[in-house]
């Protein structure tokens, strides 16, 4: 009888000891926890990347639109400038401002030539090269 009572007491004591030690709920192993954290972090990172990608895409689209607008504006300005300097418009502007201007006569033009360059043969003697550069001489009007 004493042995049974002892055993009973021991079982009760063990149980109460175990209850104090026992933790409530599911106990996750460390490895699984690490994996879960990594997956979660990866998922959050992925979401952040997607969000950033979307933001960049919107920015790209905005800047593409702006670039296109600027290109069109530049082209439009070039057209307007060319229109202003067209011979017809220049003549009209002169007339509108009562300016009677024409090209100089040949006796109104003084030609200054770099003789050393000219005689060395390096000065360009074709007319069109004169139009493109001042090598070989220059004209003062």
């Amino acid at each position: 009888m004493t042995a049974k009572r002892k055993i009973k007491r021991k079982t009760t004591a063990t149980r109460s000891r175990n209850r104090k030690l026992q933790t409530q709920g599911f106990r996750m192993p460390m490895r699984s926890a690490l994996i879960a954290v990594l997956l979660g972090a990866g998922g959050i990172f992925y979401l952040l990347l997607c969000s950033r990608t979307e933001a960049l895409a919107r920015q790209i689209k905005t800047e593409e639109h702006e670039l296109e607008q600027l290109r069109r504006r530049v082209a439009g300005e070039e057209v307007r400038w060319n229109d202003m300097i067209s011979p017809r418009n220049l003549q009209a502007a002169l007339r509108a401002n009562n300016l009677n201007m024409g090209l100089p006569r040949h006796d109104q033009v003084i030609h200054i030539r770099d003789m050393a360059l000219w005689e060395s043969g390096h000065g360009e003697r074709t007319m069109v090269s004169r139009l493109d550069s001042n090598r070989g001489g220059m004209s003062v009007r």
Binding site: L103, P104, H106, H111, T126, G137
Partner: peptide, 15 residues
């Protein structure tokens, strides 16, 4: 020719 002479400044003796 007169226009070309004035526009390009062609001298009577050429370039």
């Amino acid at each position: 020719a007169e226009y070309a002479i004035g526009y390009y400044g062609i001298p009577p003796e050429g370039f």
